[in-house]
């Protein structure tokens, strides 16, 4: 996984609460069997007119100022709904590497860390201020420093954010979860040996 250390980029505002995964990537695009290429479908129903091709001029992220944005600032309960990892895949493929909101849905939050995306949680008032800045000063840039846990801008803003130290370490080093777990192989095997044999039998007893 691509490590996340520092990031300087344009902040794009999405001033909506409860952005669900059906909005992030609608179901008709979940049929692909690859991990890549989902960025073109990000926020599809909002981003395009009914013809599915013409960009919707009213959709915030379509403004030229937010082209190439790498930081998304949005409302609370971001990523609610389905477990589809296609949602972070689409965000990452579009170019977002960091999301800032007051809160996330659990599964989406986990999925971000699996894909080198940093989901930052800040108080609602702070998020509102960042959204306002990004709206009023198109092209507004933020610098995220994960080791230092700070968000800065060129005007002297400096915000501290909290993050679980374990998750932070994995992100900073781009660590693979499976590799780490397999270091406990012996414990997994020992655990398996004491499970009752009637527990979960997918294959029919002979």
């Amino acid at each position: 996984m691509q490590p996340f250390v520092t990031l300087t980029g344009v902040a794009a505002p999405l001033d909506r609460a409860n952005v669900d995964t059906d909005q992030i990537i609608p179901k008709q695009f979940l049929k692909r069997i690859e991990r890549t290429g989902f960025g073109q479908f990000l926020f599809y129903d909002w981003r395009y007119e009914a013809d599915g091709v013409t960009p919707n001029p009213d959709f915030e992220l379509n403004a030229p100022a937010y082209e190439g944005a790498t930081i998304l600032v949005a409302g609370r309960n971001f990523g609610s709904g389905s477990s589809r990892e296609h949602a972070p895949w689409a965000l990452a493929d579009y170019g977002f590497r960091c999301i800032i909101t007051p809160s996330y849905a659990d599964i989406f939050f986990n999925n971000c860390f699996q894909n080198g995306i940093l989901p930052i949680i800040l108080p609602e008032e702070t998020v509102k201020q960042l959204i306002q800045k990004a709206q009023e000063q198109p092209g507004y840039e933020l610098t995220i420093d994960l080791p230092a846990q700070t968000i800065r801008d060129e005007e002297g803003l400096s915000i501290h954010f909290d993050i679980d130290p374990f998750r932070k370490n994995r992100l900073v080093h781009g660590l693979d979860d499976i590799g780490t777990t397999l270091q406990h192989e012996a414990e997994i095997t020992a655990f398996e040996q004491q499970r009752p044999k009637w527990s979960s039998r997918v294959q029919m007893p002979a």
């Binding site: 991990r35 389905s82 477990s83 589809r84 990892e85 972070p88 599964i107 986990n110 999925n111 699996q114 894909n115 979860d177 499976i178 777990t181 397999l182 406990h184 997994i188 398996e192």
Partner: peptide, 15 residues
């Protein structure tokens, strides 16, 4: 519910 990376994790490790 889990994401696809976690699906891979469970397939590989059952944990």
């Amino acid at each position: 519910g889990i994401g696809t990376s976690e699906v891979e994790h469970v397939l590989a490790t059952q944990t």
